[in-house]
């Protein structure tokens, strides 16, 4: 991804992109490949929000160890997002509650939103891509 900084579609348009992560890691590929889209989008200087709801909050668990299932541990990448200027990370309070999780369980700093706040954030986006 060394050529990422040069990416630009030339239009100068900045849109609000929301990436909505609703699926747990590893059981399916969506979390990993979704993260790849987020990193590319950041290189286009767009207004990116990353949102974790439902089982998607499990993507952010501390202490993930994938050695035993012999797949890549991409959870460290969430900590690198800041370096890509992706600083808007949101999690859904109700999804956390339903899974017995608190912010302390998560590998990155996030903003916890109520369902109404989450709904309003989604409604104001230009593009919503859900994985």
């Amino acid at each position: 991804m060394s050529d990422m900084d040069e990416m630009d579609d030339g239009s100068g348009v900045v849109k609000k992109f929301m990436f909505l992560n609703r699926k747990a890691p590893h059981g399916t590929v969506y979390a990993l490949e979704g993260l790849e889209v987020v990193l590319i989008t950041a290189a286009f200087d767009q207004d990116v929000s990353m949102v974790f709801t439902d089982d998607g909050v499990f993507q952010l668990m501390k202490g993930i160890d994938t050695k035993g299932i012999e797949v890549k541990d991409f959870s460290k990448t969430y900590r690198a997002l800041e370096g890509y200027d992706i600083e808007k990370l949101y999690v859904d309070q109700a999804s956390m509650d339903a899974r017995g999780l608190t912010e302390d369980d998560l590998i990155v700093d996030v903003t916890v939103l109520s369902v109404d706040e989450m709904a309003n954030l989604m409604a104001e986006q230009d593009v919503v891509i859900s994985f």
Binding site: L20, R22, Y30, M122, A123, Q125, D126, V127, V128, S130, F131
Partner: peptide
Amino acid sequence: HSNCQSWL
């Protein structure tokens, strides 16, 4: 609608 979301 100005935007859409597919709940996959």
